[in-house]
Design a protein around this nucleic acid. Structure first.
Length: 632
DNA sequence: GCAAGGTC
């Protein structure tokens, strides 16, 4: 971070003299005391009730010392951290430091949600108090996460390494309340894919060859009509309807509906959205995208890249930022047009973290390359697109009936591309229908009973996973990418490239862990999102003072203790395979066999080791790191 | 050697 800075100035509006300094994130960390720190120092189960120490990590020593010096000579501490839960707790951490060296110091809190002069002044002149309930919620979550993570991680590692140490090569088999549900999503989709059985269906295919309106080249346009029933899985019924249609195959145009239509411009950009769009369109991982955006932020090119907000403040100065983009050879002309009157206020989404605006470019950068160029271009085009008008088109929908069965076709004429001109990531193009009139009749060119098959769902992409985590409240804008990274690093999950798309496939270890926990048969498995969602809900209750932090902690700890006891028993059964119950053993064998079939193509030159317990037939993509020993 | 959450 370099040298600590302090900015001093007078603020006549409140007759005060300010010294402004900073922290970067949390300044305290939790850990167990010496008695519980060593892995062999205690039974992991005791970690649920073990004491926990709060201390300043070494990296913040300089910052803390600086704050102490300032606090000694001040009457008041005013907290300006982000106005969210974590920000409230960071404020509390700072307050603790100050009070320790100056017992009489007054603690105040500035409330603001945007770096806009007017709002900063208002916050400075209307100080409030720290919301200790929010800080409590964070403390409780930290305690819970540490105890849970440590207890389960140690139990898993010790159990597995005792027996399979040679296989694991000292690898960490961690458990975390976010990483496990994340893994659970990958395994769950993988199993859906594996269990998929294609089903045959039938449908009536109806088409008419008729020249298009402006088609002067003599080519016949074919209009395909969609059957209103979609498709049927019962062949007899489909055949009966088809035969009925064939009896009187003349089609009558029932309705021609013409209406204006729009393709809406994108919402202001959040972190999760950037990661989803980015991994889909830019061929980068969620973590790469966030790291890149962060590097650009630190050079003053992008705004803060970790935000849940998809609405701009009413006082946001769009003109200033659009103006900066007018110098671009690629989208400068578009930016200029926005400045000249084509600007339209961005749509407002539903999310607001009250801490940061949506991600937007804060400077023009014309000399970027590689990933930085890709991310910058996406953010900038998205910003300009959100500041322009929706695309406009004209849609025609035709409904026809053939002996009582209905079919329809629709065409689109794009009239104004508007935001699409600067946002090539969205596709919307004209496909026009030849002219039809209500009441007219025609003889279809093609009328066939066709057969199709349901398609296998695809494995999870990283974009899918980010969406699932976001929807289920697993992780935050700042941590979602880290959790995905963790399960890849721990080799619970492998990345598999198919064509241009990267899919996530669980390893045998990943599947084994999830199945192991599911095997316990609890409704709320550790591999599912419910428990984490409950933690989140409890935190909100603590914030709303419906519950105390001690109650939250106690309730959650009890719940996890039960799971722990069952899980440990299960693990021991698996490990002492002589004593393993038949049921557990069979389940694990099935898992291993099924997995083997699925990842076979990745490991074909690695022979199976039938003497190994099936649960531990670990296979990674990287054989150099994770290889079964040769025991010929 | 354990977590998740900040952020550099």
């Amino acid at each position: 971070m370099g040298r600590t800075s302090n900015y001093c100035f007078d603020y006549p509006q409140t007759n005060a003299s300010f010294t402004v300094t900073y922290v970067a994130g949390h300044i305290t960390e939790l850990d167990f005391p010496e008695t519980h720190r060593k892995w062999n120092s205690c039974d992991p189960f005791t970690l649920f009730d073990a004491p926990v120490e709060v201390k300043h990590p070494q990296r913040v020593n300089e910052l803390v010392r600086n704050i102490e010096i300032r606090a000694r000579g001040s009457d008041m501490l005013m907290i300006w951290t982000d106005c969210d839960r974590e920000g409230e707790y960071i404020g509390y951490e700072i307050a603790q430091v100050c009070q320790k060296v100056n017992r009489r110091i007054k603690i105040k809190r500035a409330r603001f949600s945007a770096i806009i002069a007017d709002q900063i002044h208002r916050a400075a002149q209307n100080p409030t108090n720290l919301d200790l309930a929010q800080a409590d919620a964070v403390i409780a979550r930290q305690m819970l996460d540490l105890r849970l993570g440590a207890a389960f991680t140690r139990m898993q590692c010790m159990a597995l390494q005792n027996r399979f140490g040679n296989l694991l090569e000292g690898k960490l088999v961690s458990y975390g309340p976010c990483q496990f549900p994340t893994l659970g999503f990958v395994v769950s989709r993988y199993e859906q894919v594996k269990a998929f059985v294609p089903e045959t269906f039938w449908y009536i295919y109806l088409a008419l060859n008729r020249p298009g309106e402006q088609n002067g080249r003599g080519r016949e346009d074919q209009t395909v009509f969609k059957w209103k029933r979609g498709h049927l899985f019962d062949f007899d019924v489909a055949l009966m309807l088809y035969e009925m249609v064939l009896e009187r195959p003349m089609a009558t145009v029932k309705k021609v509906v013409k209406k204006n239509t729009k393709k809406w411009k994108p919402y202001p950009l959040t972190t999760v959205d950037l990661q989803k769009s980015g991994s889909r369109l830019l061929r980068m991982s969620a973590k790469q995208i966030l790291d890149t955006a962060d590097a650009l932020y630190q050079r003053g090119i992008l705004s803060y890249p970790r935000t849940e907000t998809d609405q701009y403040d009413d006082q946001f100065d769009f003109g200033q930022y659009i103006q900066k983009q007018t110098s671009s050879p690629e989208w400068g002309a578009f930016a200029t047009r926005l400045r000249q009157g084509e600007f339209s206020k961005p749509r407002k989404g539903k999310k607001n973290d009250k801490a940061h605006p949506p991600i937007h470019p804060t400077a023009y950068a014309g000399n970027l390359a590689g990933n930085e160029k890709k991310v910058y271009e996406y953010v900038t085009r998205r910003f300009l697109a959100s500041c322009s008008k929706d695309a406009e088109g004209f849609q025609t929908t035709i409904t026809v009936a053939v002996n009582g069965e209905e079919f329809s076709a629709s065409g689109l004429l794009v009239l104004e591309r508007n935001y699409l001109e600067v946002f090539p990531y969205d596709k919307w193009s004209s496909h026009e229908l030849p002219p039809f009139e209500e009441g007219e009749e025609f003889m279809p060119t093609i009328c066939e009973l066709r057969e199709g098959e349901t398609t296998r769902p695809s494995l999870l992409t990283e974009a899918d996973l980010v969406s699932l985590m976001d929807k289920n409240g697993i992780g935050t804008d700042a941590t979602i990418a880290q959790h995905i990274n963790t399960i890849v690093e721990r080799e619970y999950v492998m990345e598999r490239l198919e064509g241009n798309t990267k899919y996530l496939v669980p390893s045998t270890l990943g599947v084994g862990l999830v199945h192991g926990y599911n095997q316990i048969g609890l409704e709320k498995s550790l591999s599912k999102p419910q428990l984490r969602r409950e933690t989140e809900r409890s935190m909100v209750q603590v914030c709303d003072r419906i519950k105390t932090k001690d109650d939250m902690l106690q309730e959650s700890i009890e719940q996890y203790k039960e799971v722990f006891i069952l899980a440990r028993r299960e693990f021991n059964l698996i490990i002492n395979k002589d004593q393993a119950s038949l049921k557990v053993h069979k389940a694990l064998k099935t898992v291993a066999d099924e997995v083997e079939g699925m990842v076979e193509d990745e490991v074909e030159d690695q022979p199976a080791h039938p003497h190994l317990p099936t649960r531990m037939m670990i296979r990674g993509t990287d054989r150099h790191q994770l290889q079964a020993p040769d025991v010929e």
